[in-house]
Amino acid sequence: HAATELTPEQAAALKPYDRIVITGRFNAIGDAVSAVSRRADEEGAASFYVVDTSEFGNSGNWRVVADVYKA
């Protein structure tokens, strides 16, 4: 099962156990969220919340930071 994305309210009520950072070329924010979901799932997380997204220069590469939560 894939890790689910939390709302800001849900994330605020929970304590993350880790923070992950992924970088890559994403065509849309949805693609980045899917990549975070896969990584969170690999780490055994039940859910995640994207904290920050930023573009690296003009290369089209993105850096996505997310907190991950157990259950």
Results as ranks from 00 to 15, higher is better:
Gly44Cys: 09
Asn58Ile: 11
Asp67Gln: 05
Thr23Pro: 00
Ser37Ile: 10
Ile20Gly: 00
Asp18Ala: 15
Phe48Met: 01
Ser47Met: 13
Ile20Arg: 00
Ala71Met: 12
Gln10Pro: 01
Arg25Val: 11
Val21Glu: 07
Gly44Thr: 03
Ser37Asp: 02
Ala32Val: 12
His1Glu: 06
Ile29Asp: 05
Phe56Lys: 05
Phe56Gln: 11
Asn58Leu: 11
Arg25Tyr: 13
Leu6Ala: 03
Glu42Pro: 01
Arg63Glu: 08
Asn61Met: 15
Val64Tyr: 02
Glu42Gln: 12
Ala71Cys: 12
Arg19Val: 04
Leu6Thr: 01
Asp18Gly: 15
Asn27Phe: 09
Ala32Pro: 02
Gly57Lys: 07
Leu14His: 08
Ala3Leu: 08
Thr23Glu: 13
Val21Met: 07
Ser47Asp: 04
Ser37Pro: 03
Ala45His: 06
Thr4Pro: 03
Arg19Thr: 07
Asn61Tyr: 15
Ile20Glu: 00
Ala35Pro: 02
Gln10Lys: 07
Ala46Glu: 13
Ala32Thr: 04
Ser47Leu: 08
Val64Thr: 01
Val36Asp: 02
Ser54Gly: 08
Phe48Gln: 01
Gly30Phe: 10
Glu43Leu: 15
Tyr49Ile: 09
Pro16Asn: 03
Tyr17Asp: 03
Thr4Leu: 12
Ile29Cys: 10
Tyr49Pro: 02
Phe48Leu: 00
Gly57Leu: 08
Ala40His: 01
Phe48Ser: 01
Ser59Met: 10
Gly60Leu: 06
Asp18Ile: 11
Val21Asp: 01
Asn58Gly: 13
Gly24Phe: 10
Gly57Ala: 08
Ala12Met: 11
Gln10His: 05
Val68Ser: 00
Lys15Asn: 08
Asp31His: 05
Asn58Thr: 13
Glu9Asp: 10
Ile20Pro: 00
Phe56Leu: 14
Glu55Thr: 10
Trp62Tyr: 09
Val65Thr: 09
Val68Met: 13
Ala12Asn: 11
Ala45Ser: 04
Val50Gly: 00
Ala3Gly: 03
Ile29Met: 11
Gly60Ser: 05
Ser54Lys: 13
Val33Glu: 04
Asp41Pro: 02
Gln10Arg: 07
Thr53Ser: 12
Asp67Phe: 13
Glu55Pro: 11
Leu6His: 02
Glu55Gly: 06
Ala40Asn: 02
Asp52Gln: 12
Ala40Gln: 02
Ala2Ile: 10
Lys15Trp: 08
Ile29Glu: 07
Leu6Cys: 05
Val68Trp: 05
Val65Ser: 04
Leu14Gln: 12
Ile22Arg: 00
Val33Tyr: 10
Ala46Tyr: 11
Ala2Glu: 10
Val51Gly: 01
Asp67Trp: 10
Val68Ile: 15
Val21Trp: 05
Ala3Arg: 02
Ile22Val: 13
His1Ser: 09
Leu6Trp: 02
Arg25Thr: 09
Trp62Thr: 05
Val51Tyr: 04
Tyr17Val: 04
Val64Glu: 02
Pro16Ile: 03
Arg19Met: 04
Asp41Met: 15
Asn27His: 12
Arg25Lys: 13
Ala32Phe: 06
Arg38Tyr: 06
His1Lys: 09
Trp62Asp: 01
Ser47His: 15
Ala32Leu: 12
Ala46Lys: 09
Thr4Met: 13
Asn61Pro: 04
Tyr69Lys: 04
Thr23Ala: 06
Gly24Arg: 01
Tyr17Cys: 10
Ala46Thr: 14
Thr7Val: 06
Ala2Pro: 11
Ala13Trp: 09
Arg38Asn: 06
Glu42Ser: 09
Ala45Arg: 02
Ala13Thr: 13
Phe56Trp: 10
Tyr17Arg: 01
Tyr17Phe: 13
Ala3Val: 12
Glu5Thr: 05
Asp67Leu: 14
Lys15Met: 11
Gly44Pro: 02
Gly60Asn: 06
Ala28Gly: 15
Arg63Phe: 08
Asn58Val: 11
